[in-house]
Amino acid sequence: MKKIIRGKCYVVGDNIDTDQIIPAQYLTYNPAILEERKMFGRFAMNGLPDKSRGLPLGNIPFVKEGSEKSEYTILIAGKNFGCGSSREHASICLQESGIEGCIAEFYSRIFFRNSVNGGYLIPFETEVRLIDKVKTGDELEINLERHEMKDLTTGKVFPLKPIGEVLPIIEAGDVFKYAKEQGMMPS
């Protein structure tokens, strides 16, 4: 497991639901087929209204037209990120686009589970309202062991909550590897 995640961040607001993360019209692609899975990267965050695309300014594309990868590595969100539908495509599209870590005030339960159990990205939480403190395009560094995030653009450091009870699953890689370690599944 990576202890340091570094890269540019993309900032979104509160209650971003899974229809905004990956609109339903793209759910006909099957994530179990490699060629189709890539399409989720292309359409990640495609449902955001223009003013919500990359705060504070808005109108910033998360993935450039025609590309399957985002230039952003870290997603910063407000409250209740990933609410709405249970579609795992939401976690998958962020991973496919190149997101490695997300920091939100808190997550919707299903998005959090999907991200952890599927091993797609690490859902960090913080008590700080980061969406008012960092800007889309800032270079950030998340230090997993020190539970902190440093904004390399401004030099400010922010505390993160310890990952807590799901850490063993994140360390194992996903829920299947964890279950094998626990002897619940044959390895």
Binding site: P31, G84, S85, S86, R87, E88, S91, I110, R113, N114, N117, G118, D174, V175, F176, A179
Partner: peptide, 25 residues
């Protein structure tokens, strides 16, 4: 594998939505 699986709580059961990974598990 659908967030509105919670509908079935009306029958006095525990019902909730999950993703593909949990369902595969």
């Amino acid at each position: 594998t659908d967030s509105h699986t919670c509908t079935a709580g009306a029958f006095g059961e525990f019902a909730t939505g999950i993703g593909n990974t949990d369902a595969g598990f």
